[in-house]
């Protein structure tokens, strides 16, 4: 006589209660085992950084490391700002006006990661290629970014990302 394996006989409250508590216990055990892979306290501590931008001269740029990746901070010249603000949104693959990309137009703060496949674009250092739009140029596949970090030419789909930041004072920003 074959027996089905589903029914073990009558289940009483105590067995149901045991199994229910076991399930709760299993979930309580699983939580730390999974959560331990989330960023640890020391990683989280470096999830925000403060940068003093007052030392950057006009026309110059610095690169800082934030969450393991480069952030470009450029002290733009008046000319660069004017050109960035004058661009028509229709000309942009990823339309964004310059004002929405900066807190203070003098300082452009963007992630130095090409939105195509993740290379670090050139244009930070004096003498480096800045591309056809005087911003940044990605040598991997030829993406050109303008003085607001927006994609103008090449395969990248979107503008260089603006990380979350605030000005703690006139000269110090907090990124992240």
């Amino acid at each position: 006589m074959s027996e089905t394996v589903e029914n073990q006989g009558r289940r009483d409250f105590i067995v149901v209660a045991t199994n229910a508590m076991l399930a709760v216990g299993a979930a309580a055990v699983a939580y730390p085992l999974i959560n331990q892979m989330n960023p640890a306290a020391d990683t989280l501590a470096l999830s925000t950084i403060e940068v003093d931008v007052s030392a950057i001269e006009e026309g110059q740029a610095i690169t800082v490391k934030w969450r393991g990746r480069p952030v470009f901070i450029r002290h733009r010249t008046a000319e660069e700002i004017k050109v960035a603000e004058a661009v028509k949104l229709d000309d942009l693959r990823d339309p964004q006006d310059d004002a929405s990309r900066v807190e203070n137009p003098k300082y452009l703060i963007i992630q130095g990661i090409c939105t195509h496949l993740g290379c670090v674009p050139l244009g930070q250092k004096i003498g480096e290629v800045k591309g056809d739009f005087n911003g940044w140029f990605c040598p991997c596949h030829g993406s050109h970014y303008d003085t607001s970090g927006r994609i103008r030419k090449g395969p990248a789909p979107s503008n260089l990302e603006v990380p979350p930041y605030v000005f703690l004072s006139d000269s110090v920003i907090k990124i992240g």
Partner: peptide, 9 residues
């Protein structure tokens, strides 16, 4: 000290 629940594991 830093890993989430690291002391427990």
């Amino acid at each position: 000290r830093d890993v989430n629940h690291g002391w427990l594991i």
